[in-house]
Design a protein around this nucleic acid. Structure first.
Lengths: 337, 337
DNA sequence: ACCGGTCATTCCAACGTTGCAGTACTCGTC
DNA sequence: GACGAGTACTGCAACGTTGGAATGACCGGT
């Protein structure tokens, strides 16, 4: 069906290898030959067979991207950014979903044969922990995202979670709030974004001389809108008073903000809100949601850049690189004075 | 590095072909041999090399999915559903983004060499039109999504746009509204979701004996929240009166609903709202948004099923199949009496 | 006229797999 | 006790590509 190197070679009256050389822009080719071969390529519509190339050269031009769920806006926007960054480097992305924090599934995915035709993997776990770090010592290039696994042998792109969460909390404090609830903690966990952001929250409180009140911590299962809504309802029902809410991500904050308003609280007058992630929808909620911009494009671009570097250099780095993206506080209606 | 059939064969003391036969569960193999080979496979951690397999057999187990932008919640949720449906059939998905309706980019994507290692494509165009239908006569299996291209030579999974839009409009009418604005029309276009849904809107009006008022049609560029917000602002500024809004998708409706509320209109008392797509976030907006559930899982599953069928049967169908998913009206606070 | 060196191109082998053809052995049948 | 019909395996070639070595042509210098 499709034209092969052999067909082009016959058509142009040269050897197969010469055609291959033209395709790969090898130096020593006469201009006239190059033109003739190129003409044949165009005429026959030759496209290299990637399977064959990959079999021979070991490269596919495909990178894997494994993340929990695309239906969560955060991961949808992240995937968008990563696919664009990959495209800029002439790579395509093969997408694998691992579900909402299923550790076993994440680990199984790491050795899935589906990754065979992939040059490397960008992996955003949600269920694994630092105890599993050694499992990331897989035989192929990998870049890690997120805050679940530290001390692994692979490059890691993440963000200043503690500092950003602290900034978010200080933002509310600077607006005069002292009873700041936090929604999205994971009870009993010692690692992950929830823990780090909670730590930032506590650091901000202590810096401002505000005592930490465990009654103001809303625990959740996942970080969906639904969980934020449920946690807010529970907190309101518990009778605890608060004048601000820090949602550990935007989905939680949005779910919580709705419930607070339904319960008759005015935002921002009675309760201020801030989230984390800078999702597009935070610009259109009522009121618009203040949030932390985690520098998604920067994260995406860096992840792809590091992965390409590892693919080209071969094997695991002696000292894995850890990259921390910059963040910004976005001040919107939900925390306006 | 990785074990090959050759290694396993040597280890088990059989021929390469026998190992291959075991892997493929060929009938005529002695149980004892099968066990011995299987043991060697496990011991050496053999995984088939997909590039080699694909070179030889022409199949990769990868399908392409080309859609506009993952950062739009609708496509994020759609991609999620398609990836899950593909996984159920042991396929992986290679994701390609074509941007917000760039016809040339969509056409270029169709012949991209990146699709080489793909067995087929699920394609959701946003810029092409029925005039381009012939371009879909590509040499590989394809399933089309959406409402841009009709009469193409490939299988097509779409939905009852006209009927669903009509149902949405009738829903508002049944709640006593007569001045129903519609947000999301594409001025001058004659095809696509916007046209079909607008048609459904007009059919509903005419069935209810309500005259069509062009002043109640809000034109937009894209179907993002921002566009809905801008269109609503323009409509309010124009001074036209309305007591309900049909957003041609949820993002438009949500953007518009915010603007309407900021302008002092109460939802649903002064203005009712309904959207289209049943995004997760419509359950958590304030108020929650009534919408049309387009049966996303059904669409995803059918698309993958049809694609697999085409891949297995080879070539283009003599008569392409057109599948229309069922829809449901979801009644929420934004249109509550 | 011959040599060394660069340039342009070709030849060969391999990547790991699978389809097909073939072989050798076992068995029940007449 | 030879014969077809299975059963259990093996061997070879090929898929389309690329890396490296090999070949040949050409050119300036001696």
């Amino acid at each position: 069906m499709a034209a092969t190197l052999r067909d082009v070679a016959a058509h142009a009256g040269v050897s197969i290898k010469t055609v291959s050389n033209v395709v790969h822009e090898f130096p020593h080719i006469k201009a006239s030959t190059r033109e003739r071969v190129q003409a044949s390529i165009d005429q026959l519509g030759y496209k290299p067979n990637i399977s064959a190339r990959s079999l021979r050269s070991g490269r596919t031009g495909v990178i894997g991207l494994a993340l929990p769920e695309l239906s969560l806006s955060y991961f949808g926007e992240l995937a968008d950014a990563i696919i664009q960054a990959a495209e800029r480097r002439h790579l395509v992305v093969l997408l694998e979903q691992t579900g909402g924090g299923d550790r076993d599934r994440e680990i199984a995915m790491l050795s899935s044969p589906r990754l065979q035709l992939t040059d490397g993997l960008i992996f955003s776990p949600l269920g694994m922990s630092s105890a599993d770090a050694a499992l990331l010592n897989v035989g192929y290039p990998m870049v890690l995202l997120g805050e679940r696994v530290f001390g692994s042998p692979v490059d890691h792109v993440t963000m200043h979670n503690v500092e950003a969460a602290k900034a978010a909390t200080l933002h509310l404090i600077s607006r005069g709030r002292r009873r700041i609830a936090v929604i999205g903690a994971h009870e009993g966990e010692v690692i992950g974004s929830a823990v780090l952001r909670l730590q930032g929250y506590r650091e901000a409180l202590s810096e401002a001389g505000i005592p930490f009140d465990p009654a103001l911590v809303g625990n959740v299962g996942l970080w969906h809108r639904r969980d934020g809504a449920e946690a807010m309802r529970a907190m309101i029902d518990s009778g605890v008073t608060f004048d601000a809410v820090f949602g550990l991500n935007d989905a939680l904050a949005l779910g919580a903000m709705r419930v607070a308003q339904v319960a008759g609280l005015r935002v921002p007058e009675d309760v201020m809100f801030i989230g984390f992630d800078a999702l597009d929808e935070t610009k259109y909620s009522l009121p618009t949601l203040s949030t932390i911009d985690p520098g998604r494009d920067e994260i995406a671009d860096t992840a792809v850049r590091l992965l390409v570097q590892r693919i080209e250099e071969g094997v695991t780095p002696p000292v894995p690189e850890v990259y921390l993206a910059d963040f910004t506080v976005i001040d919107r209606e939900s925390s306006a004075l």
